[in-house]
Each structure stands twice: as structure tokens, then as C-alpha cells.
């Protein structure tokens, strides 16, 4: 993920406070390269849960497909907890091929981590930020 996409993702999470914020990541499924960051509305408008706005999801999906890519992951903020998937995040993870990025805003400095979720198995993966 490039630095500017990373900053766009974190900025969207900060702008959503006090609620959780969420968005989708477009990119290359085979490599995990993120080529687009799609901030979406949190249809749940809550500090504890998020729901990617369905129409924002459709728009992002179409844009990614038009670019020859796909939606390959989702990011969301945790406003008061660690950057680790909650039981709800794991139970509701929609696609085992996706990357699940957590942005914790609990501390002054945001903490960003990425995971794979297959069934109930959560595995952290490296999130590589490259210069824009």
C-alpha cells in the first residue's frame, strides 16, 4: 500500500470519530497490492460497530472491477480497543480471501495492522507501506 493510500485510510478513520469509520480496499487479488482506497459511510453510525454502506460498496466494487482489479479488503477503526479483530469482526468476516485492516485510535498515534480471517482463524500479515 502506498503512503498516500495509507494516509487516506487513517484520515478517514480520524474524521469518523467518535464513531467507527470504515472503507474498502481495491487492488490486485493475487499479490495483495492495494491500488485504491474507498472511504465508505458507516451505515451503523456507531462507536462500537460498523456496516459498510451498501451503495458505497457497490460503487467501490464497480470502480475496482472497471480498473481490472477487485475489492480485496476492508478497513475499519477501533476507537477504544486494540488493532485486532473483535469476535464480531471474525464472525462477520465476509470473504476469506480478503485483507482485514484494523486502525486503532485508542492511543494518540494510530496503530494499523492487517489480518487474514479464515473461519475463526485470525492471522496477522505484514502491512507494507511504500513511498507514494
Amino acid at each position: 500500500m502506498t503512503q498516500d493510500r495509507y494516509e487516506q485510510m487513517v484520515a478517514h478513520c480520524l474524521s469518523g470519530l467518535p464513531d467507527e469509520a470504515c472503507g474498502l480496499l481495491g487492488g490486485v487479488a493475487a499479490t495483495g497490492e492495494v491500488t485504491a482506497c474507498y472511504p465508505t459511510r458507516n451505515a451503523a453510525a456507531s462507536a462500537k460497530v460498523y456496516t459498510v454502506d451498501p451503495r458505497d460498496h457497490l460503487r467501490a466494487d464497480r470502480d475496482a472491477e472497471a480498473a481490472g482489479n477487485a475489492i480485496i479488503g476492508v478497513f475499519h477503526s477501533h476507537t477504544h480497543t486494540d488493532a485486532y479483530p473483535s469476535p464480531t469482526d471474525v464472525a462477520q468476516a465476509p470473504d476469506p480471501s480478503w485483507h482485514y485492516v484494523l486502525v486503532s485510535l485508542r492511543d494518540t498515534q494510530p496503530v494499523v495492522r492487517s489480518y487474514r480471517i479464515e473461519g475463526s482463524a485470525v492471522t496477522e500479515e505484514p502491512l507494507v507501506v511504500i513511498p507514494r
Binding site: V49, V52, L58, T79
Partner: peptide, 11 residues
Amino acid sequence: VSILPAVAGGA
């Protein structure tokens, strides 16, 4: 017609 997963979760 398009089908997409509902994407949701929570802390």
C-alpha cells in the same frame, strides 16, 4: 442484479 457481501463488524 448484483450480489455483494454485507460488510460489517464491531469492537
